[in-house]
């Protein structure tokens, strides 16, 4: 829901970033207020996944210019774990498998790290099990997954559900979901989208990074942004996504070509 007076949670100004020697983000601007759902769309290579990784602090990406503030705080100065603890969540496109590390233990340590930051008491194993069993319902997940290693041997759908389960436990204020719909069948997509809808409220915000309209059929965005060549090319309402679905991305190329060439970055 759009409320012009809602507090700004995330503010991205002129963000430039590169991986190795390759400039990928070339001046991204985005403001996210509490209660909003944003969709960032674009082709492969447009920079949308990079944007999510930069916001979460992936070490392979270097920010070369720009500012990101999260509730007034300089987000880019923080280590990845601190960003998570203060309420920024990245749902991975490819959740990582960590053999040997129990999923339950992982969820508990992560949840307690977030709680400690919020000044809440640490949950012992029993209290945490109660909590996790309750949250499992959000994504209709089988408790058996708790006893397995983190994401190890999970199907694509199970991995994505595990991501949303983590989101349900960590209760972030800004959740960035990177291609959460990729690799999901219709039922899994419905469950995952249902989870995201349940968790969205007036105090938090969601940024969906996606290729396709089909996720947006299940989660209605307030804003749709189209990314190309490392920048947000156009912003509109949910109808922009429908427009894209109908006309494809070709017009993006035309629009890009019409613009003056993007100036080279000075690293």
């Amino acid at each position: 829901m759009i409320r012009p007076d809602a507090p700004v949670l995330l503010e991205i100004k002129d963000l430039h970033a590169r991986v190795e020697d390759k400039a990928i983000l070339k001046g991204v601007n985005l403001t996210v207020r509490a209660g909003e759902i944003h969709a960032v769309m674009g082709r492969n290579g447009s920079g949308k996944s990079t944007l999510s990784k930069v916001l979460a602090g992936h070490p392979a990406y270097t920010v070369t210019a720009g500012v990101v503030t999260y509730r007034g705080q300089d987000l880019l100065a923080l280590d990845p774990e601190l960003r998570a603890r203060i309420g920024v969540f990245l749902g991975f496109q490819y959740p990582v498998e960590i053999p040997g590390v129990s999923n339950l233990e992982f969820l508990r340590v992560a949840t307690n790290a977030r709680r400690a930051e919020q000044g809440a008491e640490e949950l012992d194993t029993f209290a945490f099990e109660d909590l996790v069993r309750e949250r499992l319902k959000v994504v209709q997940m089988d408790p058996a997954f708790l006893d397995r290693s983190v994401n190890e041997g999970f199907s694509g759908g199970e991995k994505k559900r595990n991501e949303i389960l983590q989101m349900a436990l960590l209760e972030p204020l800004v959740a960035i979901l990177d291609e959460t719909d990729s690799g999901l069948d219709i039922d899994a997509l419905r469950i995952v989208a249902g989870g995201v809808n349940q968790l969205a409220n007036a105090d938090n915000a969601t940024v969906l990074i996606t290729h396709y309209q089909r996720l947006l059929d299940a989660i209605t965005p307030d804003y749709v942004h189209v990314m190309a060549a490392g920048r947000i090319l156009r912003t509109g309402g949910k109808e922009l996504a429908l427009d894209l679905e109908e006309r494809g991305y070709d017009w993006v190329d035309q629009e890009l070509a019409a613009q003056a060439p993007v100036p080279l970055e000075v690293a």
């Binding site: 979460a56 392979a60 990845p80 774990e81 990582v96 790290a113 960590l170």
Partner: peptide
């Protein structure tokens, strides 16, 4: 791997604890 470390860190788990979790996971 860097990706495994980043995944744990992005869930709020500190570097040391992440390494320690993975080493004990390896030895489980």
């Amino acid at each position: 791997s860097e990706d495994q470390l980043f995944y744990l860190q992005s869930r709020g788990i500190g570097f040391e604890e992440a390494v320690s979790m993975m080493v004990s996971g390896f030895c489980r």
